[in-house]
């Protein structure tokens, strides 16, 4: 029975103050604990603690058997001022990210538009084009290593077949082309994802607005530029951020196809972190941790800046 006087205060958990069952239901702590404990435990043990430890490592030299020697900002200054490989990796990753994101997002939009205008077999095409997204990087990487093979890879065979044999390269073996070759493969894998998202967003556009645009003398190009792209802006920004972050952290594909070679041409920050930790003549987990932390902060900074710059100032209700 509720008390005659309302003496409830926020935080009161005794029986008399329990509210009726709405979303404002405040369950007893035991229940909360039951539901949340497993997740919190996993999170603390395998996410939060490792992050903290990475920060800890980054200001130490961590030798084998966990021997840790405090070096303060030593690792960071080495990375920033005394490590040309780090900067090569940064440069490679930056090129990969900027060019890759742009082609990825706008290529996805282009593909989605192709399907949006109702070509035959739209549904089958949609399913086929999404297939690479689902495949492991190992599968994708190995197949494309074969495709790029100097002697019997498809790319070179086609070039030779149409008489451009002089352009045939060892695509992954030559420092000039390796990064672009890996980028092409990465795009091959991910274009389908952006395409799917854009296609869904296009279908969510109100048909009457597009009809009004037609009546306002818009051909398909004008509709695209003045109406469709502005209305897709939230999705565009979202995908750009997602793609950007994903490419900044790229490891798997590079490792599988070139291991960062030839001659650091495809070395990315992630592969460098791995190499410094597990594939270096000295064993030290501190330095690569510092590089990881540094890169993490840079990614966050970029994401924040990008979101602020590109986000919609007012709501785009429709």
């Amino acid at each position: 029975m509720p008390p005659a006087l309302d003496t409830r205060r926020p935080g009161d958990r005794n029986a008399a103050s329990r509210q009726r069952a709405t979303d404002g239901w405040r369950p007893p702590i035991a229940t909360l604990a039951l539901f949340l404990a497993p997740a919190i435990l996993v999170y603390v043990g395998f996410t939060a603690y490792p992050v903290v430890r990475t920060f800890y490592n980054s200001v130490h030299l961590v030798g084998p058997n966990g021997a840790a020697e405090f070096v303060g900002t030593g690792n960071f200054s080495t990375a920033l001022f005394a490590d040309p490989v780090f900067w090569t990796a940064v440069r490679n990753t930056a090129i990969f990210t900027v060019v890759g994101t742009t082609v990825d997002v706008f290529g996805g939009l282009l593909l989605a538009l192709c399907l949006f205008i109702k070509v035959p077999f739209t549904r089958s095409l949609r399913v086929i084009w999404f297939l690479p997204v689902l495949m492991s990087y190992v599968v994708v990487g190995i197949i494309w290593v074969w495709i790029y093979d100097y002697e019997w890879g498809v790319v070179n065979l086609l070039l030779r077949a149409i008489g451009l044999g002089t352009l045939a390269h060892s695509w992954l073996g030559s420092p000039d082309t390796a990064l672009w070759a890996v980028m092409a493969t990465h795009l091959w894998k991910w274009l389908g994802f952006n395409m799917i998202v854009f296609l869904a967003a296009l279908h969510a556009l109100p048909a009457e607005v597009l009809g009004a645009a037609e009546l306002d003398n818009c051909g398909w190009l004008a509709k695209l530029v003045y109406i469709i792209i502005p209305m897709l802006r939230p999705t565009l920004v979202n995908l750009m951020v997602l793609s950007f972050v994903g490419k900044m952290m790229i490891f798997d594909l590079v490792w599988i196809m070139t291991q960062g070679g030839p001659l650091w041409a495809t070395e990315t920050v992630s592969t460098y972190v791995y190499k410094r930790a597990f594939d270096w003549n000295t064993f030290d987990l501190g330095y690569p941790s510092a590089v990881a932390v540094l890169w993490f902060l840079i990614i966050i900074a970029f994401v924040v800046v990008m979101s602020l710059l590109l986000r919609q100032r007012d709501r785009l209700e429709f």
Partner: peptide, 20 residues
């Protein structure tokens, strides 16, 4: 003749204003 060349204006039930 395509819609834009018919010299017609339409008012839609959902107004169909350009939200941006």
């Amino acid at each position: 003749i395509p819609a834009k060349d018919r010299d017609i204006a339409m008012v839609f039930q959902s107004y169909a204003l350009y939200p941006h």
